[in-house]
C-alpha cells in the first residue's frame, strides 16, 4: 500500500470520526441551555479535579493486571495444550471443540456464575483466561503446522532430536504466527475486561458504567478513550516485540 493511499484512508477515518462526534452532538437532542450545562465532554473533569490522575492510574493498573495475568496463564496453558496436540494428533479436535465451546459462553454469564464460587479477581481471571485459550492454541498449532516440510527434513538430516527440532527449527519459524496470536488475545482481553464491571471490577470501563448511570457523558468518553488507548498501546508494544524477535521476516519482498 502506498503512502498516499494510507493518507487517504487516514483522512477518511478522521472525517468519519469528526462526523460521528458532530452527529452525536446533534443527536443528543438537548436544547441549547441543557447543552451548556450537560455537554458531551467536560474538560474540567480531567484538568481541575485533583483526584482524577490518581484514580485513572489506579484503574489503568487494574485493567492492565486483568489483561496481562490471564494472557500469561493462557500462554502457559495453551503451550501445554499445543504440545499435547502436536504429540497426540487425535486430541486436536477434542481440544479445539472444548476451547470453542468455552469461547461460546457469553462473558457476562461466565463472570456471573464464577463469582458465586470464587472471589471477584479469581473469577475474572479464570473467565478471561478461558477466552484466550481458543485464540492462542489455534495460533500456536497453526504456526507449527505451517513450518515447511523441507526445514523439518533438513533438521532430521542433521540428526536433531525431536525436542531439539522443536526448539531450534519449529518454534523460531512459527514465531510470527505465535506472536500474532498473543497480540490478538491481548487486545481481545482488553475489551473483555470491561464486562467484568458486573462483578465490581472492570478497570477503566467502570467509567463507562458510572457515566451511563449518572447521565454524565464525560465519564463515558473518558472510559472509552482510555480503554482504546490501552488496547492500541499494547498492540503497538507487541508489534514491536514481534519486529524485534523475527529479524528475518523484516526484509519481506513485495508480492
Amino acid at each position: 500500500m502506498t503512502a498516499r493511499r494510507k493518507a487517504t484512508y487516514a483522512v477518511v477515518l478522521v472525517a468519519l470520526a469528526a462526523f460521528g462526534i458532530w452527529a452525536a452532538n446533534r443527536v443528543s437532542g438537548l436544547s441549547e441551555d441543557t447543552q451548556a450545562t450537560n455537554p458531551l465532554f467536560r474538560w474540567e473533569y480531567l484538568f481541575t479535579r485533583e483526584r482524577t490522575p490518581g484514580e485513572l492510574w489506579g484503574k489503568t493498573r487494574q485493567h492492565l493486571e486483568l489483561t496481562v495475568v490471564p494472557v500469561l496463564i493462557g500462554i502457559v496453558l495453551s503451550s501445554l495444550l499445543s504440545a499435547l496436540i502436536l504429540r497426540f494428533g487425535w486430541l486436536r479436535s477434542v481440544v479445539f471443540t472444548f476451547a470453542g465451546v468455552l469461547y461460546t459462553i457469553p462473558s457476562i454469564a461466565l463472570f456471573a456464575v464464577l463469582v458465586t464460587y470464587y472471589s471477584n479477581e479469581t473469577a475474572a481471571i479464570t473467565a478471561l483466561t478461558s477466552y484466550t485459550l481458543l485464540i492462542l492454541t489455534r495460533n500456536f498449532v497453526a504456526g507449527i503446522d505451517a513450518v515447511p516440510r523441507a526445514a523439518l527434513d533438513a533438521a532430521d538430516g542433521l540428526g536433531m532430536s525431536r525436542f531439539q527440532r522443536l526448539r531450534k527449527v519449529e518454534i523460531p519459524l512459527a514465531l510470527p504466527v505465535i506472536l500474532t496470536g498473543i497480540r490478538i488475545a491481548t487486545v481481545t482481553v482488553v475489551g473483555l475486561v470491561g464486562i467484568s464491571a458486573v462483578i465490581q471490577l472492570g478497570g477503566l470501563a467502570i467509567y463507562i458504567f458510572d457515566g451511563f448511570n449518572r447521565d454524565y457523558t464525560t465519564l463515558m468518553v473518558l472510559g472509552t478513550v482510555a480503554t482504546i488507548l490501552l488496547a492500541v498501546v499494547l498492540d503497538i508494544v507487541l508489534r514491536g516485540i514481534e519486529w524485534l524477535a523475527t529479524p528475518w521476516a523484516r526484509r519481506r519482498v513485495a508480492p
Binding site: 487486545v187 481481545t188 482488553v190 475489551g191 470491561g194 464486562i195 463507562i208 472509552t224 480503554t227 488496547a231
Partner: peptide
C-alpha cells in the same frame, strides 16, 4: 471492532 469495547 476488536479495539472498541462492546460496553461503549
Amino acid at each position: 471492532g476488536r479495539v472498541i469495547p462492546t460496553v461503549t
